[in-house]
Lab assay of single mutants.
Amino acid sequence: MSRVPSPPPPAEMSSGPVAESWCYTQIKVVKFSYMWTINNFSFCREEMGEVIKSSTFSSGANDKLKWCLRVNPKGLDEESKDYLSLYLLLVSCPKSEVRAKFKFSILNAKGEETKAMESQRAYRFVQGKDWGFKKFIRRDFLLDEANGLLPDDKLTLFCEVSVVQDSVNISGQNTMNMVKVPECRLADELGGLWENSRFTDCCLCVAGQEFQAHKAILAARSPVFSAMFEHEMEESKKNRVEINDVEPEVFKEMMCFIYTGKAPNLDKMADDLLAAADKYALERLKVMCEDALCSNLSVENAAEILILADLHSADQLKTQAVDFINYHASDVLETSGWKSMVVSHPHLVAEAYRSLASAQCPFLGPPRKRLKQS
């Protein structure tokens, strides 16, 4: 649940008159999402009104509101027999009622949201009550392989729920002597030191190019640089560091992050930047690179990204790559990247197969709970 924001200063709310007192009302909304995959969808019983329910879910471990999704594969009634019906059901509720908006969509073979439908307002739910769409999607369109909505005969539904909580009022009075504290510009100011090479005390040599930097900042941000300058190493004695395995453009992006906490060109060089972040123990930059690479996972590059993640101990990226390969196994196994990995990294192939087997055979063990970014 997000923290209630402070109200904007009255002088910034309007260029008009300023009242002596004010009130700011925040209506709290808890948002969460749920993904439900139905394997072997074409084998569902086709009687009209037949119901399939998901397991229950909530916004978190401490949330007492429990929900589930309900599907009628062949419609709810005679009117909707040519459609799939989809509903959000409130299973248990400690209150007399709650209000919530919802959005349903289908994830296609690429994991993209399609055929989205959402409620136009927050509906009133009581325990045992459901709301949804009797005519969510035509069955003939859903079952047509050309539309790519049932890869490997799996129907994957994605649901986003927004639950309306209580409202909170914050009130106060205006004073004539309003003090406005300026925003912190530390990142910009440190970035200026790097860009202008002011007050530098060490030189970093990268592929024949020299960059002036500040030992204190490098040591504070990177345990690797800290070790170089702290001990009686040649880098500490000469205040000069030779860097041979990072390209200059990648190095500059890494230094921008060290000084400012930002990497504006990360998406263009996420793979190389991940390697640099791993070498210099820049954990936050490493996770930022993992996130960017996750966003660009595809059938063509899944094997290469899995190898990269394994090489640099990028655990979150590795998990996402394995899950992606499992979901698109029939396509990924035909790529040149996968065939190369079979020869060069057989242990990763074995890991992917083990994960695929456990996903398809849940009876082999208890269900695993899916539970950071600093």
Rank of each mutant, 00 (worst) to 15 (best):
P5A: 10
P10A: 02
A11G: 09
S15I: 07
A19C: 02
T25Q: 05
I27D: 00
I27R: 10
V29A: 05
Y34N: 01
I38D: 00
F43I: 06
R45H: 02
R45P: 08
R45I: 02
S54Y: 00
S55Q: 13
S55L: 07
F57E: 00
K64G: 10
K66Y: 10
W67T: 01
R70D: 07
V71I: 04
N72L: 13
P73V: 06
P73G: 13
K74F: 12
D77L: 10
S80V: 08
D82Y: 05
L84S: 07
Y87D: 00
Y87G: 01
L89I: 12
L89D: 14
V91P: 06
S92T: 13
S92D: 14
S96I: 10
V98R: 12
K101D: 15
K101R: 12
F104S: 00
F104D: 00
S105Q: 13
L107W: 07
Y123K: 01
F125H: 06
K129N: 10
R138A: 07
D140S: 09
F141Q: 14
L149I: 07
P151C: 10
L155G: 13
S162K: 07
V164E: 08
S171C: 02
G172R: 02
N174K: 01
N174V: 03
M178S: 02
K180F: 07
R185G: 08
L186N: 03
E189H: 05
G191E: 08
L193P: 02
F199Q: 15
T200C: 14
D201L: 00
C203I: 07
L204C: 15
Q209C: 10
E210P: 09
A216M: 08
A219F: 10
S222H: 00
V224P: 08
S226T: 12
F229I: 15
E232F: 03
K238Q: 04
N239H: 05
I243G: 03
K252V: 06
M254R: 01
M269Q: 04
A277M: 01
E283Q: 02
L293G: 07
L297S: 00
S298I: 04
L306A: 12
L306T: 02
I307N: 10
L308I: 01
L311Q: 05
K318P: 00
T319R: 09
I325L: 03
N326W: 14
N326P: 01
Y327E: 04
Y327H: 02
H328R: 02
S330N: 10
S330H: 08
L333Q: 05
K339V: 02
V342H: 07
V343M: 08
V343S: 09
S344P: 04
P346F: 06
A350N: 12
A352H: 10
S355N: 02
L356G: 08
C361K: 11
K372H: 14
